[in-house]
């Protein structure tokens, strides 16, 4: 029938039918090829981690995507549309200009300390700036109490580069692997110290004053109360024994309170992992 086949002669029917068919085939394969090509180009760029985070962010449940200003009561029920990157958020900018997010006080809540000289990431890490321009990144008290003593920590090597909302390091606890999001981008100078086994010393790519995506001052209290509320909500539908409202403190190893299936859910939820 086709060229090269004995007795083949083009007719109008061939042109219409085979033309349509092969046009469809070309569309299918060129679409796939375009997908491959775009992926290949993107893989070669530095956007991978940012893209992964944006993608993961969209898969998070709504309560995990709550805007920092909705937790503080400034805006009601707002879901963050910018993957927690307040640097590009006009709403955040206008609220900061109004001075509503300013504040210098730290927080002490449920046995956890949140210092006013540190910046906090929604994935439960903190950043502290040093006079030499480097920063230290660590896990906040909430995350530390969730993990207790971790089974395994996989830190990046000095010289490695981390990106904002990319993988900072990995922790394994009670059979669950957790990737901890990096709060800032930069080059890792030192990974882990005896006092703080899950901390990184990093030379940031930009000054911390530009890190508007991180929480500080008055933003911290509402956020950590929101997180404690979520943890309580996950744990129980009835109130038994000591609770947050009674002045209770978070236990030192929360993982023991959950079975493996629920623990997996807790880790994913608080470390923003879909």
């Amino acid at each position: 029938m086709l060229p090269g086949v004995n007795g083949f002669q083009w007719q109008f029917g061939h042109l219409v039918f085979l033309g349509t068919f092969f046009a469809v085939v070309v569309v299918i394969f060129s679409t796939s090829a375009l997908g491959f090509l775009r992926s290949f180009k993107r893989l070669g760029s530095d956007e991978n981690e940012a893209l992964m985070w944006k993608h993961h962010f969209m898969d998070l449940p709504q309560e995990e995507r709550a805007c920092r200003h909705s937790m503080s009561g400034e805006l009601k029920g707002r879901i963050c549309p910018n993957a927690f990157d307040c640097r590009q958020c006009s709403t955040h900018r206008s609220l900061v200009q109004l001075g509503s997010s300013a504040g210098t006080q730290g927080e002490e809540l449920a046995g956890m300390t949140y210092r006013s000289d540190r910046f906090y990431h929604r994935g439960h890490t903190w950043v502290e700036e040093h006079s030499d321009g480097t920063v230290t990144i660590g896990l906040d008290d909430f995350a530390t109490k969730l993990f207790g003593a971790p089974d395994e920590i996989v830190l990046p090597q000095p010289g490695d580069r981390i990106t904002t909302n990319g993988v900072g390091w990995r922790v394994r606890k009670a059979g669950v692997d957790v990737r901890v999001l990096a709060p800032v981008a930069g080059e890792v100078l030192e990974a882990g110290t005896p006092e703080q086994p899950w901390s990184l010393r990093v030379r940031p790519e930009s000054p911390l004053s530009e890190a508007r995506h991180l929480l500080s001052g008055d933003d911290i209290g509402p956020w950590i109360r929101h997180e404690l509320g979520r943890l309580q909500g996950m744990a129980s539908t009835v109130e038994v024994g000591a609770v947050l409202a009674d002045g209770g403190e978070l236990v030192d190893d929360v993982s023991t309170a959950f079975d493996q299936r629920d623990w997996d859910h807790v880790c994913s939820s608080f470390f923003l992992q879909p």
Binding site: L231, G241, A242, L244, G247, G248, L250, V251, A257
Partner: peptide, 11 residues
């Protein structure tokens, strides 16, 4: 599966 008493302790 995990009552609040397993999460919080009294100070």
């Amino acid at each position: 599966t995990a009552p609040d008493s397993a999460l919080f302790k009294m100070t």
